[in-house]
Amino acid sequence: MTEQNWSLHRAWLFLRGYRDALEPQGETPSATSLAHRLGFATSTGPRLRNACIELGWVEVVEPPHGNLPGVLQLTEAGRAAAARQSPPVATLPPAVQRPKPVRIGSATPGKGTRRCLCCGSEFHSTGPGNRICNGCRATDTYRSGDVGIHSLRLSR
């Protein structure tokens, strides 16, 4: 299954979740709570809600405001798509397609000068797995093993 088909499949499952919540109970769950209820990461909820709106399956009756999720309504196209046994074949609009991941920092292989992940100082690294400077490695906090980057920064 391609990434495009997988995203459309998740949007279709999300649509069915909206159908199950909107029709019998008449409530509009927030996108994050519906994503959680369906077993998706809550951070994908707003993107999937937007996909349902962009595909014309759901329309906004009242926009969200404050902590309230707003009110949504299934369209006829949404009811038809939700009633299908398998997701429809369509193309997701570019605005709701998953963005390409962006790498943060340099992933320079081999030896070289790097910035320490704990204190931020530059040091001579022995390889790609060496991301902590010797000064930070020498602290009791680091050697205890019970450390996060933030507690190491505070101990120096």
Rank of each mutant, 00 (worst) to 15 (best):
Q97F: 09
P94G: 05
A21H: 02
P64D: 00
R79P: 02
R103K: 15
A51P: 06
R98C: 04
F14K: 04
R156C: 09
Q73G: 08
P88I: 06
S125L: 03
C136E: 07
H124R: 15
D140F: 11
H9M: 11
H36Q: 15
P88W: 08
P99I: 11
T108P: 05
A41W: 14
R131P: 12
A107I: 13
S121G: 14
V58F: 12
R156M: 14
H124V: 12
T44W: 14
R115K: 14
E3V: 06
A51G: 08
G78Q: 04
G148E: 07
T126E: 07
T75A: 00
I104K: 13
T139G: 03
L68N: 14
E23V: 08
P99E: 03
S30E: 04
E62L: 01
G127M: 06
E59D: 09
I132S: 06
C116F: 04
V58M: 11
K111L: 14
S86H: 15
G17N: 04
T113E: 15
H124D: 15
R84T: 11
G66E: 07
N5F: 10
H36L: 14
T32Q: 15
R84P: 01
F123W: 05
P128R: 13
A80P: 05
P29M: 01
R114Q: 02
T28S: 05
L74R: 00
T108K: 12
G105L: 01
P29T: 02
L22N: 10
C118V: 14
T108N: 09
R98D: 12
A90P: 03
W12N: 00
G66P: 08
G110F: 02
F123Y: 03
G78S: 03
W12D: 00
P93T: 12
T42E: 13
R49T: 10
N5I: 13
P94A: 15
A82D: 06
P46M: 05
R103A: 13
Q73S: 14
A31F: 02
S43F: 15
G66Y: 06
N130Q: 13
S144V: 05
S106H: 09
L38I: 07
C118S: 14
G110C: 01
G66S: 07
G135I: 03
T126F: 11
G120W: 06
I104C: 14
G56L: 05
Q4W: 13
N134W: 12
E27W: 05
S33V: 10
V96C: 10
A31K: 03
R114H: 01
G148T: 12
G26R: 00
S33N: 12
A80Q: 10
E62M: 00
I132L: 11
K111E: 12
G112K: 10
R16N: 09
S121Y: 13
I132C: 12
D20L: 07
A82H: 08
E23G: 05
L68Q: 11
A41T: 08
P64S: 05
N50I: 09
G145Y: 12
A82T: 03
G45S: 11
S151V: 15
K111H: 09
G45A: 07
L34Y: 02
A83W: 05
D146Q: 14
R49P: 01
P87Y: 03
G39M: 07
T91S: 13
W12M: 06
G127F: 03
S7V: 08
P88N: 03
R114I: 01
L8S: 02
L22E: 10
K100R: 13
W12A: 00
D20I: 05
S86P: 02
